[in-house]
Design a protein around this nucleic acid. Structure first.
Length: 422
RNA sequence: GGAGGCGUGCCUGAGUGGUUGAAAGGGACGGUCUUGAAAACCGUUAGGCCCUCACGGGUCUCGGGGGUUCGAAUCCCUCCGCCUCCGCCA
């Protein structure tokens, strides 16, 4: 949620920046929000004045004569009536104001290229060399089925389309990837968690991702009024909801391993094969709560950490800056890392890092206290590892005989396994 | 699934209609004392909104909302949340 005070102080800038995110400058909602807030303040001041009058009368009531008392009480009745009317008005205004603010996206950072969609995302750098094969590289599903690493056929029988089993040496490899990653990020100061995968409706709403509400992207348990998380972030970011943290305990670096659930409602027919786009997958996710002035440094650190993870695995990847038109609502800036998939001769998103600044912190009421008072923290999130990286490893490390040579850095975690062969 | 209980400040915990934003204790922070520390003593220890350059002031908040009343943490209604016991169970 955006800060109405900030909007008021910086209206032209806000309008201009949100325009790059598809909020038209003709859109009245920003101006309306300001008007609503002005009205709210005006009415609230009226109420405060009435309250003050009532309070001061109540204090003197015991010393009044009976006639004065009667007169005063009659006056109070009038004031109370007026107060109730004002209160009803304020409630209405507040509700409509919150709704308007909720729908406005975060203000994009200057680093985000202006654009309309993912087509305008900008590749910033490419790292490593395109893996060369003296044979035609196979796609990961062909390899995985041959080596019995992934089974989507039986998953369909059990759970339907867009589910998968990772099994055997595939499961071992996945576990090794997680262990390898976890060692890197805990060394970098992240506190590991296992967190809930079901969250309350208001918590899901306050994360700011509109697509996750009303059952569009999130699975919804109607009877319990709970939502299945789409990412570990959904349960980890609200961990300090309604808290005021000490400034010297920031930044808080957290990481959680959890299952993630997505309905993929808008992607029928897209990537239906394999486990690239599934309804359920596991993810090691990072979340950082930081002081506002430090959040861009933290953002750089998160991306550097992601690159370290991928580079350590020896994967070829590139890094792109997500355009303003493609930013998720709460994000001010997003950098995606995409690993090379030889069979497709394409890069595929495996990692994403976002700085949501104070957008989510405001909705979740997560603040910190410093000498200058209290303020909202900045919240960032970033992927540590997902099975999409497993896909990249399988494809980039395949050999001509259809086997997979495991990256050396993973071997401490694979119980002696060095090659996956038939 | 059955039965019951509870929601007060950083924490514990008083408070059942009138200077109670709230006793007391603990913790934390600051100070005195000390070579240093401990102990002891003194002090500080909410957040929102509005007005004000500021000093300061108004108002709200004892889970949320509504009601009763001149006046509510305190009484009534309602919603939400949490806990305990039994049953079932990883």
């Amino acid at each position: 949620m955006l800060d109405i005070k900030y909007i008021k102080k910086n209206l032209p800038e806000v309008q201009q920046k949100l325009a790059t995110r598809g909020v038209s400058t003709n859109d009245t909602s920003i101006v309306n929000a300001i008007q609503l807030d002005d009205k709210r303040i005006e009415k609230q001041s009226e109420i405060d004045t009435i309250k003050a009058e009532k309070n001061s009368f109540s204090k003197t009531i015991s010393s009044l004569s009976p006639t004065e008392k009667k007169k005063g009480i009659a006056n109070l009745a009038k004031l109370s009536k007026k107060e109730n009317l004002l209160k009803a008005e304020i409630d209405k205004i507040q509700e409509s104001l919150t709704e308007k603010l909720r729908l406005l996206p975060n203000i994009p950072s200057d680093a985000s290229p202006v654009g309309k969609s993912d087509k305008d995302n900008v590749v910033v750098k490419e790292v490593g060399t395109v893996p060369s094969f003296n044979f035609t590289p196979l796609d990961y599903m062909t390899l995985s089925e041959r080596l019995d690493l992934i089974d989507t056929e039986r998953a369909a029988k059990v759970s339907g389309s867009r589910f998968g089993y990772i099994k055997g040496h595939g499961a071992l490899l996945w576990n090794a990837l997680v262990q390898y990653t976890l060692e890197k990020i805990t060394t970098a100061g992240f506190t590991p968690f296992y967190s809930p995968v079901l969250v309350r409706e208001d918590v899901m709403r306050d994360s700011g991702y509109d697509s996750y509400l009303e059952g569009q992207e999130a699975y919804h348990l109607a009877e319990e009024k709970l939502y299945l998380v789409g990412t570990g972030e959904h349960a980890l970011l609200p961990y300090h909801r309604d808290e005021i943290l000490d400034a010297d305990t920031l930044p808080r670096k957290y990481t959680t391993y959890s299952a993630c659930f997505r309905r993929e409602a808008g992607s029928y027919g897209k990537d239906t094969k394999g486990i690239l786009r599934v309804h359920q997958f596991d993810k090691q996710e990072m979340v950082v709560l930081s002081k506002p002035e430090k959040s861009w440094d933290i953002f750089d650190q998160l991306v550097a950490l992601q690159e370290d993870i991928i580079q350590g695995l020896g994967l070829h990847y590139h890094l792109l800056e997500v355009s303003t038109g493609d930013l998720p609502r709460p994000s001010a800036r997003v950098v995606d890392l995409e690993c090379f998939i030889p069979s497709e001769k394409k890069f595929r998103e495996t990692h994403s890092a976002s700085n949501c600044t104070d957008y989510q912190a405001r909705a979740n009421n997560i603040r910190y206290k410093s000498d200058d008072g209290t303020d909202f923290v900045h919240i960032l999130n970033a992927t540590a590892i997902t099975p999409r990286t497993l896909i990249a490893v399988i494809e980039q490390y395949q050999k001509s005989d259809g086997s997979i040579a495991l990256p050396e850095v993973l071997q401490p975690y694979t119980f002696g396994l060095k090659n996956i062969t038939v």
